[in-house]
Structures are given as structure tokens and as C-alpha cells.
Amino acid sequence: MDLIAVLADAVRAAVGPQAAVFALAAVGLNLQFGYAGLMNFGQAGFMLVGGYGMTVSVTRYGAPLWLGVLVGLLMGFLLALLLGVPTLRLRGDYLAIATIAAAEILRLLFRSEAAAPLTYGVFGVQQFASDFYDLNPFGGGSYGIGRFSLSGGQLWIALVGWLLVAAAVALTALLVSSPWGRVIRAIRNDEEVVRALGKNTYAYKLQALALGGLMASVAGMVLALASQAITPDTYTADLSFYAFAVLLLGGVGRVLGPVVGAVLFWLLLAASDSLLRQAITSGVISDEVLSTSDVGPIRLALVGIALILFMYFRAGGLLSRRTPKTAATAKAEVAA
């Protein structure tokens, strides 16, 4: 087996655009769940409207890329209002169900035949990002050290992705260290106390949901740009769950947690993927037991196991010292 290749695969994934996409989505989720305690299980929906908002305006209406990006952001903001205005008055677990349902509705609508004239249906659309890659300053060559390398295009999207991550992290850091951040952290602890102290908690929750949703919309755009393709079925509920896994891996309620989480997540995912594939192709694992097509599902099963173990042993995530708590939890404990 070629362990150097495994390592190169893992590192490439950990610094690549995919990891940046998950880091962005998880930074947004951190603001929502980690700081404000909002259980948003529809991060995939925000990514979808971001990605499609940009793509559709560019391909269907010939808009320039920057306008597409604005449309994507607007879509993310509108979705946050649509979801938040009615559901943020409800119990936390209702928000979870409403967000997951909304994300699923969006995916089903976008893949439907009826919407195909706008959304391109099940198969989506490809090769729409030439505007973006025309800006690539790295050219077509390959960059890297030894076995680890990225093409110029990959390097370009990875760079943009990570710069956006840096911006999102900086914004989060500024916000959570301000009095605004104190209010949303307090809301996660006990919303009623915060209301009793004269804060409009509903408005704060809506702000946190919208900000996190905007970051996820940006993540959706980076994802679409990186793969030069967008299909509705990229944005399944599982995508939202991975965002949670990334956040938990890195540490809930810590500014850099999502970044650490995304890098670790992809490092582990790509390494296990590469290892398993090599083990199968080289015959270490008989292909009667597993075939290479089983590698994808096994990776995801590992994500599932990781989620269970985290929640069982360290609910705040790998790097956290405390457990996340919401007002709903506190109430449930009181009732228990």
C-alpha cells in the first residue's frame, strides 16, 4: 500500500475547496447553534438557495457573476426570514423539524420537472463558472510539493474559499466578543431570563439565523464554483448533518472550531477513503467483502458513529470544555 498517496489525498482534501465549503457552512452553524442555541438542521437548504441563486442568475439571465453572488445572498437572507419569522417563537426542536422540512422541500422543488425551466431539473447544470475561472491568476499549471499538488484552478477556488472562511471567522470573532455576542450566548443559556432583562430575544435569534444562513449561502456558491456543477441532490439532509459533524468535531461555540473541524473532517474522511480503496484494490480486503463502491457509504457510517460517540461522551465536541444547552433543554430538565 502507498501510504504517501493516502497522506497526499488526505492533505489535498483538508486544504481543498471542499473543506472550505464545510468550514463556511459550519462557521454559520456555529453562530446559530454554538452561540445562539438554534437547532438549524436545514443548512443544506441555505447552501442550495445560495448556489442556485448565483448559478441561475448567471446562466438563465446572463447576469454577471457579482450580481449572481448578490442574488444568492439575497436568497439566503429571504430563506432565513421565511423560516425564522414564524418558527423562532416555537420550541427549539420544532425549529429543527421545520428547517429540515424546508430544506427537503427546496431540494424536491428544484429537482421537479415543473421547475426545470428555471432549475434544470434533476441533472442540474454544468460549466457555468468560466467568469470565475477567467479571474484565476495561477494559470493552468500544477502547484505543490512532490505527490501533493493542486491544479491552478483548484488552487484559485481553494484560495477564494479559505479567504471567505477567514472573513466569516473574523466576523464571528468580532460579533461574539461584543455585547451582541453576550446577548446571544445568554439566549442559548436561558431565553426567558434574557427577555426579562429587556432584550428582544426573537430579533436576536432571527439575526443569528440570518447571518449563519448567509454564510451557508456563500458556502453553497463556493461548492457550485468548485465543482463547476450544481444538482439538487447535492443538497440532501445529509449535507446538513455533516455540517453538524464538522462543528462538533471542531468544538461548539469556539470561534475557530469549525475551521479545525472542517480540516480534521476532510483529513479523516479522505484518509479513510483512500486507505479503504487501496486495501480493496490491492486485495488486503477481499472484494467479496467490500467493493470500492461501498467506500462512500462506509465513510458516512463512520460519520454516524462519530456523531453518536461525541454526543455520548463529549457533547461539546472534541475540543470543547462544556456541553451545549438551549432553553428548550433547560425547560425539559425542569419538567423531568
Binding site: L174, L175, S178, P179, W180, V183, L211
Partner: peptide, 10 residues
């Protein structure tokens, strides 16, 4: 506290 608004905070 003015920093409790998102604009004020930033």
C-alpha cells in the same frame, strides 16, 4: 448598551 445591536457591535 449600543454594542448590543449588530451594527453597533461591528
Amino acid at each position: 448598551q449600543r454594542g448590543e445591536g449588530i451594527g453597533g457591535a461591528l
